[in-house]
Write a protein that binds this DNA or RNA. Structure first.
Length: 723
DNA sequence: GTGGGGATGCTTTTT
DNA sequence: GCATCCCCAC
């Protein structure tokens, strides 16, 4: 094959197919190109069958793109190569080898919410009060421990304070509960394979002989279990290439450990090292400004990234008053770029530190009619009604999954509350049977007849589908189950306007299962469930739509855009307050900022606000981010900005309430009643259908002219009464 | 015992 | 601005 498209170092990195290879690849230096060409080279010149290659990427989307590029280069339309995220590769491996671990091959995968639900049950059993340790805090600390590979017993030994002891206790109980539910959490997906390799070395050897060549992308963001997975897999043949950049390590809070790169050399002393230092993405101004910031970090490998493109324009800097004016500034710069440079909407991305910042931007984009896509926020598969349907399916696949059982036993409402379930749990431990089996003979329980009947018919329903789960296709099973469980009926009969939307979401889920069946007719339902639970936000994003992309800086990793806006550059927001406490976390924030800036090809705009509202009301008097100060002045162009929306300022004062009073004609909050016609700045005219709450908390349900229904808080909604 | 409605409190980032 | 929790009415 031809390596003409590659530069010298890239070529050498591709051609090094014998022994371990470590590639330091700076931002925009073509690491994806090296990885894809290397795969092609391995297949064409290195005498590897595609089946013998394992490639690990950071997101499913990156995996799919890489596979597509390799197929294109090979001019083929099938490629039996193992390519995916650590989590999906491990999940597949575990399903195939479950028997070696006494694990059910139909184990459930618990997401964050499932974990919290499980910990709530444990809290209750162990009488842990949430004032001492919230379920959420317990979850994240347990996850941290698992990422550090600290087992419950070790944590118990280590514990000094009462809190640490409690945590160890909850941790131990949590692990036991997971087993009982035949469920694995995200961390387990990485830990179980290691246990498997210890217990059954012959299984490890089997995979070592399958995956003779291993490639790893974004190596700087691997954690300890991932490091072990990779090194164990590669230790036999030592044919492995890893690509990473220590300056782009932004997942330390998730256990990612930059020392994995340094340890790579220790583990494979014979490894060849290549350093890609030519940046093909950004202009010199952008690259030098970003590099100037990241050199403030002490802990980093020295490097000299050089821009291959020309000098380019200065970094634009906006000072704005608040988050509304911030979005005005972005829109005005965006419109200018479109007019003067003939850009399209999909040339732009707006990056921010926290998901919560998207709302203000989103509102203004919608008001101004600018098409946008948001990555993240509430995921489709995280919506309650969607999760409820998925929980039915998960329960049918795994009757021991009590978290799913609890989720759906009273959905749609069957009159089964917490107390009734408590009694079921008690009975189960008394009879030493599974919780689900208790439901079969519910009349034995000290509960009313109506409830035991409901429990028994619920049992019959699930049992029926459990028995036929392998005879039906995924979509047939789901459609029938959703119908028979009365979920569609429940939403159709409801008067709540939001239930119509929920019904739509359930239908959308059914459609996506249909699509899955069409694409992979022979795959069982469990494959669909697995795919869904391992999806990430960025996996849904596609750049072919002509829309502006809004997302967190974290999500932007690996992407590139002609123009990047970084919003919310207030000190305390980016870098975030909590990160200021330790040097390590501040350095990680700085790397995150570096990642954000280096996404840009031609132009970067930085925006901060002096008076940002956070958490519902409080104002923060903002200083610009310290990272802006770390950019040498000669790279910056301060742009004077006049907000197009002038009604906000009255008499030059910058009082927050002025904005409210000027546009508001209703003086007290309680002026509304059912039937009133109102005007909303975005949704237009509408009629009040429901009222609830009083004073500041008054809410209204409004049906707008175009048919959309919204529940709004009067205090925030800026409604005007019209006649 | 259940479920609706109101008060409370919270926000990092994600496989 | 939202979800979660808690309390009270059926």
């Amino acid at each position: 094959m031809s390596l003409k498209e590659l530069n010298k170092v890239q070529c050498r990195a591709v051609e090094a197919v014998e022994g371990p290879v470590l590639i330091f690849a700076g931002a925009g230096s073509g690491k994806t190109r090296v990885l894809t060409h290397k795969m092609v080279y391995l297949i064409q010149e290195g005498h590897y069958h595609p089946e013998n290659i394992l490639a690990v990427t950071f997101t499913n989307k990156a995996a799919a793109e890489m596979k597509e590029r390799v197929m294109k280069l090979l001019k083929t339309d099938t490629l039996p190569i193992a390519i995916g995220t650590f989590h999906s590769i491990c999940a597949r491996l575990l399903r195939n080898e479950a028997k070696h671990l006494n694990l059910s091959p139909s184990f459930a995968i618990y997401d964050v919410q499932d974990q919290i639900d499980l910990i709530k049950v444990i809290h209750k059993k162990l009488e842990v009060h949430k004032d001492i340790l919230t379920p959420n805090a317990a979850r994240s600390q347990i996850s941290y421990l698992k990422n550090k590979m600290i087992m419950p017993s070790a944590q118990l030994k280590k514990a000094r304070t009462r809190l640490e002891n409690k945590l160890a206790e909850v941790y131990a109980a949590y692990e036991i509960s997971l087993r009982e539910n035949e469920a694995l959490d995200f961390d387990d997906l990485l830990l179980y394979p290691l246990e498997l390799f210890d217990k059954a070395p012959e299984v490890l050897e089997k995979y070592q002989n399958i995956w003779k060549y291993i490639l790893v992308d974004e190596y700087q963001d691997t954690n300890r279990p991932q490091y072990f997975f990779i090194t164990r897999m590669a230790e036999k043949y030592e044919n492995i290439s890893v690509v990473g950049d220590d300056d782009q390590s932004i997942y330390g809070w998730r256990g990612a450990d930059v020392t994995n790169i340094l340890d790579f050399e220790k583990f494979f002393p014979s490894c060849q090292i290549f350093t890609l230092e030519k940046n093909y993405r950004s202009t010199e101004q952008i690259l030098d400004a970003a590099s100037a910031v990241v050199t403030h970090n002490d802990k980093r490998a020295k490097k000299n990234l050089v821009a291959a493109n020309g000098s380019g324009e200065l970094i634009g800097l906006f000072e704005t008053r608040d988050e509304l004016e911030e979005s005005d500034a972005i829109i005005s710069a965006l419109e200018k770029e479109i007019k003067l440079k003939k850009r399209t909407f999909n040339n732009f991305a707006v990056l921010y530190r926290t998901n919560a910042q998207s709302r203000a931007l989103e509102d203004n984009f919608r008001r101004m009619g600018i098409p946008y896509n948001i990555v993240g926020g509430i995921r489709f598969y995280d919506r309650k009604e969607v999760k409820d349907v998925l929980a039915y399916l998960r329960l049918v696949m795994n009757l021991k999954d009590t978290i799913s059982l609890r989720r759906v036993v009273n959905f749609p409402p069957r009159g089964i509350g917490a107390k009734t379930m408590d009694k079921c749990v008690e009975q189960a431990s008394l009879d030493k049977v599974e919780l689900f089996d208790v439901l079969e003979n519910a009349e034995k329980l000290p509960i009313r007849g109506k409830q035991s009947e409901a429990l028994e018919s619920f049992f019959e329903l699930i049992k029926k589908y459990y028995d036929i789960r392998e005879k039906l296709s995924a979509c047939e099973l789901t459609r029938a189950l959703v119908e028979e469980a009365g979920i569609l009926h429940h939403f159709k009969e409801s008067n709540d306007p939001e239930d119509a939307e929920r019904l739509d979401n359930v239908n959308e889920l059914l459609n996506s299962i249909d699509e899955f069946c069409l694409k992979m007719p022979d795959s069982p339902l469990s494959d669909f469930l697995e795919e869904v639970s391992l999806l990430s936000d960025i996996d849904h994003w596609n750049d072919s739509d002509n829309r502006v992309t809004l997302m967190t800086a974290h999500s932007s990793k690996g992407l590139e855009f002609p123009v990047i806006f970084i919003a919310g550059l207030d000190d305390g927001l980016f870098p975030l307050y909590n990160a200021l406490e330790s040097k390590e976390s501040l350095e990680e924030e700085r790397r995150l900022f570096y990642v954000a800036m280096t996404r840009a090809e031609e132009r970067v705009y930085l925006i901060y606000a002096t008076n940002r509202r956070r958490m519902g009301g409080e104002n923060l008097l903002g200083m610009p981010s310290r990272f802006i100060g770390e950019i040498p002045d000669e790279f910056l162009e301060r742009i004077e900005f006049q907000s197009a929306v002038t009604h906000r300022v009255v008499g030059g004062s910058r009082v927050k309430q002025t904005r409210v009073e000027v546009t508001r004609t209703v003086t007290s909050f309680d002026d509304f009643k059912v039937g009133d016609m109102v005007e909303h700045s975005i949704f237009g005219a509408g009629k009040i259908m429901v009222l609830s709450g009083t004073g500041e908390n008054q809410r209204v349900g409004v049906v707008f002219k175009d048919g959309t229904k919204k529940k709004l808080i009067v205090k925030y909604a800026n409604l005007t009464k019209i006649t």
